[in-house]
Nucleic acid binder design. Structure first.
Lengths: 201, 201
DNA sequence: ACCTGAACACCGTTCAAGT
DNA sequence: ACCTGAACACCGTTCAAGT
């Protein structure tokens, strides 16, 4: 691990790493500047030398979380439908890799922060189907909204299951027995909608 | 207005109304229990007689926000596609009616609180197309995620425009010039995907 | 370049007690 | 039935000053 536990001075990267560790161990609610400072054996005010505020720190975490995707642009030969599905799956995997990952990315995105790379990649995959830029962009943001919402619920359910030790689920219509299948279905709807809009041109 | 400004005692409804007013005037970030208590001329602890905690209060607000939809089940004769689009539009309108409405509903939903009526209504509209219960439910949640994500961004942009007085938009790919059109496009993708899945049976 | 110490202006929630 | 008063255990952020 990169964080120095003996020496006293830290880099911006150390702070981000420690924050990611707290996020994964305790969740977003417990990721406070004071706790983070404590983990680094530092006063809370020290963090503000590395990041101007908490939002910026969270944006950095969001970027690191989504950047961990498998990433390869996928063989050019593959059908655009497969490319879209692959991008969506990779994004879901990246979000699931960290506790509350979807919420971190979602809130960062909602604040207009974070790198636009995520939408761009999705849009690129869609554009391979021959759709114009505007259509590709709109499809990508719509799909992104679905992915974030879906994985948010998925992660919240995980947390409840491990905490409430199974609430004998009250049959909430948003709870899923097979998250992966429900996810694939949702992505399929998008791809299908795009296919149909194309055959209608 | 229902809230009594002269008498000292309040009902649960008074508290919810005052909270909605603060939400609409100042936004979710400024809707604190202490500020709410101040608006009601009451100690913060008094609120906990009406609501067990803040989350429950927010869930109540979320229910009120979405319950304000035009609601009529739509003529039975209408095509299911129109029913889905109408439900989506009505939901968007309801969310837009209150400042940060989408965020309130979204966070409440993410916590598993709030009435399941919203998903049920969407699912019902989808089911009119002859889809089975599982498909209808999954489609409804996917569509709901899109609606919430979309309107969240829309409302955040409104706030930025009124605050930052136009940031000469940095061309973020998530910003929309025509939100209503982008919304209709996203909903159309869903409906199209459903149509295609039907024609493939 | 990186951090301390101390403060400012807040939070949500609990609980005994009052009317 | 509805509220007060006082406390508990926290927050994010700023800023002069230190090394």
């Amino acid at each position: 691990m990169a964080g120095n536990e003996t020496g006293r001075r830290h880099s911006r990267d150390d702070v981000a790493e420690a924050a990611l560790r707290i996020l994964d161990d305790l969740g977003l609610a417990d990721l406070t500047m004071r706790r983070l400072a404590g983990a680094l054996d530092v006063q809370p005010s020290a963090l503000y030398w590395h990041f101007p505020n908490k939002q910026t720190l969270l944006a950095e975490l969001a970027d690191r979380i989504v950047a961990a995707r498998t990433a390869e642009p996928l063989a050019e030969v593959a059908a655009w439908q497969d490319a879209v599905r692959a991008e969506a799956d990779a994004l879901r995997d990246a979000l699931l890799a960290y506790r509350d990952g979807a919420e971190v990315v979602s809130s960062t995105l909602a604040l207009g922060l974070g790198s636009p790379g995520t939408v761009d990649r999705l849009a690129l995959a869609v554009a391979r189907g021959g759709f114009d830029v505007e259509t590709s962009r709109r499809s990508a943001t719509a799909l992104l909204h679905f992915v974030l919402g879906h994985v948010s619920h998925e992660q919240q359910r995980i947390q409840y299951d491990s905490l409430g030790v199974l609430v004998d689920h009250p049959e909430s219509p948003l709870d899923e027995d097979d998250p992966a299948a429900a996810f694939a279905f949702g992505v399929g709807l998008f791809v299908g909608g795009l296919e149909l809009s194309r055959s209608r041109t």
